[in-house]
Design a protein around this nucleic acid. Structure first.
Length: 113
DNA sequence: TGATTGACTATGA
DNA sequence: TTCATAGCCAATC
């Protein structure tokens, strides 16, 4: 099999950053993309998450869109799995979106840089 | 090979 | 404030 070098690297970075998300915290696709230097490629982060399912150490449920909406909940097998995991970490979820998202927001650019 | 889609975001009306 | 459109880049059909 062949590896697309840059693409693999990008995906790997996405997984690395996602794994660094503290327990009980959440971040956004755009924040990760920005940290990787691809702020305009936020969709690629989401695509990377699509392949994150095979990485048990990648808490994709802690990654939501820019307003804290659980847009990717449908990819967890159950539409409630993501919400349930977040609630178990102390994050309140209402109407498929993180309550007080701003407070739980974890920006890798600010925390890691 | 070309067109369409998608776990997003920013901007304009 | 809410809705619609454009840009992004890789994967899939």
């Amino acid at each position: 099999m062949k590896y697309s070098s840059d693409t693999e690297n990008f995906f790997d970075k996405v997984y690395a950053v996602t794994k660094l998300i503290p327990h009980g915290r959440v971040t956004s696709y755009g924040a990760i993309a920005k940290y990787l230097g691809a702020a305009r490629s936020s969709r690629m982060v989401g695509w990377a998450m699509n392949g994150a399912g095979k990485y048990p150490d990648v808490p994709a449920h802690r990654v939501v869109n820019r307003v804290g909406l659980l847009t990717g909940k449908m990819h967890f097998g159950s539409t409630t799995a993501m919400q349930q995991m977040l609630e178990e970490e102390g994050i309140q979820v209402k109407d498929d979106k993180v309550v007080n998202f701003k407070k739980h927001f974890w920006d890798p650019v600010l925390e890691l840089d």
